[in-house]
Write a protein that binds this DNA or RNA. Structure first.
Length: 419
RNA sequence: GCUGGGGUCGCAUAGCCCGGUCCAGUGCGGCAGGUUGCUAACCUGUUGGGGAGAAAUCCCCUCGGGAGUUCAAAUCUCCCCCCCGGCGCCA
């Protein structure tokens, strides 16, 4: 959520931001107009309330003196009616403004490159060399189908975009989760295991609601939703709290399964486990002072990259241009791992600086020099587990199986897996 | 799930029975200033959100959330949420 103050002071900043994202600037004009009316009503109502409160105070004294309070009571009743009318009007405006404000995206950082689509995302750096015989590697879904991934039974038990991992694939998934968590703890992140179901308030805090409800799974009769990423419960850990300035930055890592309806992804990545309704992920979350957040995004991204470096998987880092930026993010780096069977780099992590956008929604503050300020929040995958498994099966593939990356051998208790 | 207790301005507490000097008191912490020849002590002010104003300042809102009664609600009524203890159930 953006601050109304910012919009009042200079709506053109937000209008430009929306245009850069390729969105309509119309909501800003509407917001300015509603706010103007609201402030007028608020002033009128406050005036009447002040009057009423003042009169109301005289009643008890008049009563003690035994005077006639009837006319005074009548006057306050009249005032009450006027107040109720004005308040109702103001509330309508507040609801309208909140509706808009909660669906307006964050303002991109000045450093974010302008662009019209994902084709305009510049490459920031590259690590590792894709293997020369890339084209001989078969896609994971072809080689793993026999003994490692059961697509049919996944579909039978739950439906399309669900799988059952078997034997060493199941162990590989578990090994990757443990490996990633251990590594990120060494990188200085405190491990937490949050709830996998959260309430609407929490979903609103990080920006999934109200705008993206169709991408979430909702429990039938309870106010509970399945988390689409650990970012949601972990960022909201301190909602409504006031943090110690000296404790910042705070860094957390968390494993959770992630549940996404993938509405609108019809026929996209339908083969294999590239895009599932349920997948595992280790997530990194930071709470920082405002002036720290851009530097902390750099280290957070490096920390996510360290997973791929330890696994010796080639990757590149790109920066999302204004048009591709997520709703809550002011700046995002995507990490893309090399997938031989597709002969290209594919997203495996997304690291974002959400500045004070989520902190405002979730009301996460700290006190400095006696004043309250909003913290900045950051998050990034550290990293997506299923896609890492794909990358290993393809990049380490040789003949009828694949070599286990050195970093995983202690977890896997073997150095090779056969298909 | 049943039952008893509880949720108050950063933290801790008072107030609630008997509605109105409570626009919430006190202690601690934080901030600002002052004082004593020292990183200790003391004194004063301040401490959440919002509106109007150039400013001084003025006003409104806030006692877990919501609805209601009333001229007036932290205080009364109803619903919901959460925390602590007991019983029940359970991986």
């Amino acid at each position: 959520m953006l601050s109304l103050k910012l919009i009042r002071d200079d709506p053109s900043i937000l209008e430009r931001s929306l245009r850069q994202r390729g969105q309509e600037a119309e909501p800003v004009k509407k917001l300015v107009e509603l706010d103007k009316k609201w402030r007028h009503l608020k002033g009128e109502a406050d005036k009447l309330k002040g009057e009423k409160n003042a009169i109301s105070l005289t009643i008890s004294e008049a009563k003690k003196k035994g005077g006639n309070i009837e006319p005074i009571v009548k006057k306050t009743k009249e005032l009450s009616e006027g107040i109720a009318t004005l308040d109702a009007k103001a509330e309508k405006l507040e609801v309208q403004m909140a509706e808009i404000l909660l669906t307006v995206a964050n303002i991109p950082d000045n450093s974010v490159p302008l662009g019209k689509s994902e084709a305009d995302n510049p490459e920031v750096r590259k690590w590792g060399e894709p293997r020369k015989d890339s084209k001989s590697a078969k896609p994971h879904y072809e080689v793993a189908e026999k003994s490692l991934i059961d697509f049919e039974r996944g579909a039978k038990v739950a439906g399309h975009r669900f799988v059952v991992l078997k034997g060493l694939a199941a162990r590989l998934e578990r090994s990757l989760v443990n490996f990633m968590l251990d590594l990120q703890v060494m990188n200085g992140y405190a491990e937490v295991l949050p709830p996998f179901l959260v309430n609407s308030k929490t979903m609103t805090g990080t920006g999934q609601l109200p705008k993206f409800a169709e991408e979430l799974y909702r429990c039938r009769d309870d106010d509970l939703w399945l988390v689409p990423t650990a970012e949601v419960p972990v960022t909201n850990l301190f909602s409504g709290e006031i943090l110690e300035e000296s404790a910042l930055p705070m860094k957390f890592c968390a494993y959770t399964p992630c549940f996404r309806r993938e509405a609108g992804s019809y026929q996209k990545d339908i083969k294999g486990i590239m895009r599932q309704h349920q997948f595992d992920k280790v997530e990194l979350v930071k709470f920082t002072l405002p002036e720290q957040s851009s530097a902390e995004l750099e280290t957070l991204t490096r920390n996510a990259e360290s997973v791929l470096q330890k696994l010796e998987l080639p990757y590149r880092v790109i920066e999302l241009c204004t048009a591709d930026l997520g709703f809550a993010s002011a700046k995002t780096y995507d990490i893309e791992v090399w997938l031989p069977s597709q002969d290209k780099y594919r997203e495996i992590s997304s690291c974002s600086n959400c500045t004070d956008f989520q902190a405002r929604r979730a009301n996460i503050r700290f006190r400095r020099a006696g004043k309250m300020e909003f913290v900045h929040t950051l998050n990034g995958s550290g990293i997506a587990v299923g896609r890492t498994m794909i990358a290993i099966m393809e990049n380490y593939q040789d003949g009828n199986g694949f070599t286990v990356p050195k970093a995983l051998r202690d977890y896997m208790r073997c150095d090779r897996v056969d298909f």
